[in-house]
């Protein structure tokens, strides 16, 4: 099932199309990386996937259903969203934030009960975060905060996870740790779609890559097919070399921008 996007067009002012005829699919178990320079329409595409923006043309299907025909709670059961970062105005506990992910499963006037909190704790435990459950969400590190958002998305019970630059505000080590966890989600049956400005993440962690340029699909396929030196150079407007680095007998593809002498 997963996500199926067909001939998607979107414009904010009915004059300039931000998205022009985008088509792709991500099946259950796929980890799809969305790459493209700033302003290419990644955020707009994500808003269309979440059903917040109505496409001018084309369709977005989540688990076989048109997202525009789904109610808020139906959408929440199909797709969970993980923003770039969370800096809540109020210093809720980590457990409170994770429990919020279950709101779509509750009735209008229902509040979370012990069973919801236990489930949130179980999810935090599975991420090795349970000891932070009662800590203020503004008192934990950036990496922990990103895992907290992941936990919140996981308790939502959606099989599609949409992540907007999940490592954008993280240091080198935390980026690695968060991406390591994200890539295991695909093998557990989740459909993971993440955007990134780091081609190395797509090369290493994604099963498929969607490269966007000027609101259209430049290329779609496996990382090896899509992330060629030519494609990356065209995508970012700088010369990029793609090499394989051997570490303890395992080859890791890396991309390196360089100055064109």
């Amino acid at each position: 099932m997963g996500v199926k996007v067909e001939h998607l067009r979107f414009s904010y002012d009915e004059k300039v199309n931000v998205l022009k005829d985008i088509s792709f699919r991500a099946d259950s178990g796929d980890v799809l990386a969305v790459l493209g320079p700033n302003g290419v329409g990644k955020s707009t595409l994500f808003q269309c996937l979440l059903g917040f923006l109505r496409p001018s043309e084309g369709t977005v299907e989540l688990e076989g259903r048109d997202v525009q025909h789904m109610t808020n709670s139906e959408r929440a059961k199909a797709i969970a969203y993980i923003p770039q970062s969370a800096a809540p105005v109020f210093n809720y506990t980590v457990l409170d934030i994770v429990t919020m992910g279950m709101t779509g499963q509750m009735r209008m006037f229902e509040s979370p009960g012990p069973e919801h909190r236990e489930r949130a704790m179980e999810t935090l435990r599975s991420l090795g975060m349970d000891h932070l459950a009662h800590r203020g969400c503004n008192q934990i590190s950036g990496g922990e905060r990103q895992l907290m958002l992941l936990a919140r998305a996981l308790v939502q019970d959606a099989k599609i996870l949409l992540m907007d630059e999940p490592t954008a505000n993280l240091d080198y080590g935390n980026s690695y740790r968060v991406m390591e966890r994200i890539c295991t989600l695909g093998s557990r049956g989740f459909t993971v779609i993440f955007s990134s400005h780091e081609p190395g993440h797509a090369l290493r962690y994604a099963d498929r890559v969607l490269a966007l340029l000027d609101g259209t699909v430049l290329a779609e396929g496996t990382p090896a097919e899509v992330l060629t030196e030519e494609a990356l150079t065209r995508l970012y407007g700088i010369p990029v070399a793609v090499r394989e680095v051997d570490v303890n007998g395992t080859g890791f593809p890396v991309s390196v921008p360089y100055r064109d002498e």
Partner: peptide
């Protein structure tokens, strides 16, 4: 579904909380 992403040690230590 989450068994495979369990942290091997408390994240607090790993992330320097």
């Amino acid at each position: 579904d989450l068994d495979g992403i369990r942290a091997e040690e408390p994240a607090g230590r790993r992330f320097g909380s």
